[in-house]
Structure formats: C-alpha cells, structure tokens
C-alpha cells in the first residue's frame, strides 16, 4: 500500500508530465499553422505543373512519349518511397504510413515483383529496416533541415530518376500522409513514375486542339519537365506530411494532456480519502487513549 508521501510524489510526476504534453501541444499548434501555410503555398505550383504536363501529355502520343510519362512497359521492379516524419509522439501518424507501405510491399512481393525501398524520415526507416533491411536502397534524414525547399528534395528526386533511367525501377510509388484536415490525415499512395497525369487538369479547349508552339521541341520540354515534376510532387507531399505530422502531434498531445488531467483527478480523490481515513484513525486512537486514563 502506497504511503501518503508516495502518492504525493506520484501526483507531482503526473502533473509534470501534463505540463510537458501541454507545452508540446502548443508548440505543435504553432508549427502546424506555419506548416499548413507552406503546404498551401506550394499548391499553386504543383497544380500548374500538373496542368502543364496534362496539356503536353494530351498532345503527345505513341512512341515519342517519354518513358517517365508512360512507363517502360514493365512493372517487375517496384521502387517504394516511404515518407514519414523524423520524430515520434504524434499518435499513429508514422505507423499509419508505414502500415500502408508494408501492405503494398507485401502484396507486390506476393505477386512476384521485386520491391526496393527509399525511406525519407527517421521514423519510417526505423520501422521498416527491421523487416526489409536488405531492400532499402537509401534512407534520407531530413531532421536537420528547417525549411523544406526544392533544393532539399532535389537529391531524392535525382536518385529516383536515376534508378528509373538505369532500369533498376519500373514503377515508383510514394507513400505519405495526405493532409485532409487538422483532424484527418490519410495515409496515401501516389504513383510518381509513370507520371499520374490528370487529363481533366488540362486547359479546356472546347474540343479544339490549339496549335501550340514549343521552344525547344515538345519532347525536349517534357524530358526536362518530368524530372522536375518529380521534385515538385515530392516537395508537395513532404510539405503535406509535415503539416499532417504537427496536426497529428497536436491531437495526440491534447489527448495526453486530457488523460493526465483525469489521472490527477482520480489520484487526488484517492489521496484525500486516504488522508481522511488516516486522520480518523488518529482521532480514534487519541480518544481511546484518553478514555483509558
């Protein structure tokens, strides 16, 4: 049976934990605002890029189409890029992404495909290397970078493009968490290669194909645009991931703070009962002692 002093220490320690979770929640909330803004700021570029590619893809057909757009005809070599956060304490955020990726890897492996992995973010690497250590091509750790820019993701996009052009990867799929709202982050898969072109994003020409002029040629533009699209897609996904991470951390820490509050309440009740019981016992002892005289 815990003594009163033990109970006091325990309550104190839960209170200290609650202060930490409360602070973490507030920090996450502040960072969420910024992360959300930068995710939103990146959206116009990604959207325009998709529209430009869709415009081009519509006009291009047959053998002249670059492989990055239409694929190289094979799906044997799968490259899976898993983007998670570098830190934890964010509820199921990282685990959800990893679970989605793991399911995909297992289903592809079962289908006889060769799967290799690139991880972005420390948590994803830690969780995946237990099971797929030999399949990890490269792990990127972005914990040192404060601001995500196109330059930060360029090396990752370069590696993906190289894997593809050198024939080690036929299909590239990115796993990340789509930021739907502050309370909903959906682990999602996005196909990077062959490019997932949304033809409806192309400018509506009312059925008439406009005569486009290209400088340099159509093919050359696509050749340079597609690798860039990789970086842009990656950046947009990582920014969404970032916003999702803070949103997830915020609600996880909010829950933790609330749980700590409930624990403190329950413990205080127990503590006070015990204290009263002890006082009552002491009083009985004193009265009994006085009567004996």
């Amino acid at each position: 049976m815990a003594s009163l002093k033990d109970m006091r220490t325990q309550i104190g320690s839960v209170k200290a934990t609650q202060k930490i979770t409360k602070a973490m929640q507030m920090v996450a909330a502040a960072k969420l605002k910024r992360a959300q803004d930068s995710a939103e700021n990146a959206r116009p570029y990604a959207k325009r890029m998709a529209a430009v590619i869709a415009n081009l893809a519509k006009g291009i057909t047959g053998d002249s189409a670059p492989q990055m757009l239409v694929g190289n005809g094979s799906t044997t070599n799968q490259l899976v890029v898993v983007a998670t956060a570098d830190r934890g304490l964010a509820g199921g955020f990282n685990s959800n992404i990893v679970r989605a990726a793991r399911e995909y890897i297992q289903s592809q492996t079962a289908a006889g495909k060769k799967v290799r992995l690139i991880t972005i973010g420390r948590k994803g690497r830690d969780q995946l290397k237990r099971q797929f250590a030999s399949q990890i091509v490269e792990s990127f750790d972005l914990s040192g970078t404060k601001v995500l820019t196109i330059d930060v993701v360029a090396p990752i996009a370069d590696l993906i493009a190289r894997e593809f052009s050198e024939g080690r990867a036929d299909v590239v799929t990115l796993f990340y968490s789509r930021f739907q709202s502050v309370i909903a982050q959906v682990p999602s898969a996005k196909r990077l290669i062959p490019a997932d072109v949304d033809l409806s994003a192309a400018a509506d020409t009312g059925g008439v194909q406009p005569v486009y002029e290209y400088e340099p040629s159509e093919e050359e533009i696509l050749e340079t645009l597609l690798p860039r699209n990789l970086s842009v897609q990656l950046l947009a996904s990582l920014l969404e991931n970032n916003a999702g991470f803070y949103a997830s951390q915020m609600s996880a820490m909010d829950n933790a703070t609330r749980n700590a509050g409930e624990m403190i309440k329950a413990m205080n009740l127990k503590y006070n009962r015990k204290r009263q019981a002890q006082i009552t016992t002491e009083l009985i002892e004193i009265i009994a002692g006085a009567e004996a005289l």
């Binding site: 930068s38 700021n41 990146a42 116009p44 570029y45 325009r48 820019t149 970086s231 842009v232 950046l235």
Partner: peptide, 8 residues
C-alpha cells in the same frame, strides 16, 4: 501568374 515551388 509567376509561381515557385515555395509560393506564388
């Protein structure tokens, strides 16, 4: 519109 990956 002039956009960069970071912002418009």
């Amino acid at each position: 519109s002039l956009v960069t990956p970071e912002r418009e």
